[in-house]
Write a protein that binds this DNA or RNA. Structure first.
Lengths: 342, 342
DNA sequence: GTTAGCACTCAAAGCTAACGAGTGCTAAAC
DNA sequence: GTTTAGCACTCGTTAGCTTTGAGTGCTAAC
């Protein structure tokens, strides 16, 4: 069976009606929503075909139709008319987001808040990562006799620190040795190259100072690998409770989001033209099989980038939210470009 | 009507049975749980008295009794036998917590995890704060032509940083002026003294460099006030969903916990001997009127301290959990003392 | 190919009856 | 005076039943 223009119109109407109301859509309801006049019986025939083709589903025999994952996919890829963000909204969004200008973390937190409020979904955002960030600076700050803060600053502007307790008292020499080794082995080095292998050769080369110094360099390497991971922020988690269709899975979703790793994976997932929409079972994680994820990348002067995303029910207003997300990621990219480069 | 030993025994039995089962406790059930033999009718009479005295409540006429806030309070203060933490548990707890040794944040995250798992509640923990922390070090790291990372390290070992965009290009002079002003006005100064007043006089004294330099000092002052707030960590929020009696209020509680301020307030609430238990309506926040909060302070060499807490239903196993919390805060205090002082 | 008509399906809502855990009260026993 | 057995009563819970109505698939006529 092949797709016809009329079937497309009916499919689009079902999707849009279901997105609006959340109720399965019946043939009579649909009559009033189509721009051509046919009887409900005709619509029923067409809908039966669409079910057979896999675009619609029936919760039970005597209920209306609901879009399947495939149906949503077809709608988004071929049928949907994107709603442009109107002037008023775009200005107010831009103003809200811009209030976080200055500090990237604050900016993305703000952006997350705006997205969460606007979409009534959970928002995930990543801080910008530089592709080939390297170590810019390392600091060693004793805080007690045996404990020091080790601080790492990358060329991408990421700062990480950690308290670290050594096995021997810290002396002036400890500090000097730290900076000397850093200058030789860490400063200017790409973060990717700082791994266990590099660390082992380094420790070996420390000779008699290995015992004294190695804890700090281990910590430094930890910081480097932390800095490589793009930090992910989460906002508006509790919005998920507002969607009845998620009621069973909210806890599972939250549990999934709590762990950093899946989040990172989610938001990094391959995208074309900076946009990525995953519907229901298209998602890698089964906890999200009733959810949709919209991810939009932002670019900072071409060199660095991150992403903004939302997680919500499959019944998202894609036509409205996709342009929103693209607009907001544009704003974030623009502001970050201003902040970070000159 | 006054309390009698028999009434106390009955009250304790009701509380314990209710904590165990979550079901209202009837007179017949209670017969089997008392260490003396009386008929159910007698127990009914006593329970009626306890209701009148405000220690018990009746969900409805034909249901058993449930402890009131007052009942729990009486039980905890006068009747409860604390269960000591047994050797096996204490060792395994200590081992788990100690795995976060080294970095305070990591330690308290770990402690929070352990608590959450052990108690099936949400765990809140604060990082240790020094009473009179002062500025130990400030750093200025340009990341682009007009943006710099401003970094603040306190004597308590807290490190805060922020990207900050100035109005003029950053030059070598900018950096030198920054460090000069810091040395004169920030280093060694108690965090409390860095407020808007101090900032205004400082900016005024900058003269012709005010425009160029002030953004960075504003950022530095921001960092100082951030460093003053004790950081609060939250673990195991989703455990709250495991308690049926909280079902209605979990979202409200989570919304409350999301904001930092209430958390800080909660965990800072006045305590005697380091322990603080708030039952149901004793809590300041109405979102917690069905919940209990147990807070236990930890001390680090007397000089700094923080707290560990749990939030759960009022039906907590106080006799077990209070000693747990005290034990864990002891462990945390000990480990932190080792890490931070010498 | 389209439509009116009709019998059929099935979840949801409402209704009633039975159940049973638990109570308060009374009067007798201790 | 306290304790207890006995009993009528309360009330939330559960199960089973019917009703309702939105929606369907099929058929036969247009």
């Amino acid at each position: 069976m092949e797709m016809t223009p009329r079937k497309e119109k009916i499919l689009a109407a079902v999707v849009e009606s279901f997105i609006r109301t959340g109720e399965p859509v019946g043939s009579k309801t649909l009559m009033g929503e189509l721009d051509f006049r046919v009887s409900s019986a005709t619509i029923r025939n067409e809908m039966a075909d669409l079910v057979e083709m896999g675009y619609l589903e029936q919760p039970h025999t005597s209920a209306g139709r609901v879009p399947s994952t495939l149906g949503y996919r077809y709608y988004i890829d071929k049928l949907m008319n994107k709603l442009e963000v109107n002037k008023n909204e775009s200005e107010s969004i831009e103003k809200s987001v811009a209030s976080g200008r200055g500090d990237p973390e604050q900016l993305l937190e703000k952006a997350g808040e705006v997205i969460a409020r606007l979409t009534n979904c959970a928002a995930i955002t990543t801080l910008p990562t530089g592709e080939q960030a390297c170590v810019r600076r390392a600091e060693f700050v004793p805080v007690s006799n045996r404990t020091a803060m080790v601080v790492l600053l990358t060329s991408a502007g990421t700062l990480k620190s950690k308290a670290c307790r050594g096995d021997m008292p810290i002396t002036q020499q400890t500090v000097e040795r730290f900076y000397a080794v850093c200058a030789a082995h860490f400063i200017g080095k790409p973060l990717e190259e700082i791994g266990t292998v590099m660390l082992q050769t380094l420790v070996a080369s420390l000779g008699e100072y290995a015992l004294e110094m190695s804890p700090y360099f281990v910590a430094l390497a930890d910081l480097a690998s932390e800095a490589l991971k793009s930090d992910v922020l989460l906002e508006g988690q509790s919005n998920l409770f507002n969607h009845r269709e998620l009621s069973g899975s909210v806890v599972d979703i939250m549990e999934l989001l709590r762990k950093g790793e899946p989040l990172t994976k989610l938001i990094a997932s391959g995208d074309k033209d900076g946009l990525n929409v995953k519907i229901g079972t298209e998602n890698e994680y089964k906890q999200l099989s009733n959810s949709s994820v919209i991810i939009s990348r932002y670019d900072v002067n071409g060199s660095r980038s991150g992403a903004l995303g939302i997680i919500g029910p499959t019944r998202l207003n894609y036509a409205k939210l996709i342009p929103y997300m693209q607009f907001i990621s544009g704003v974030v990219g623009k502001i970050l470009s201003e902040t970070l480069e000159d």
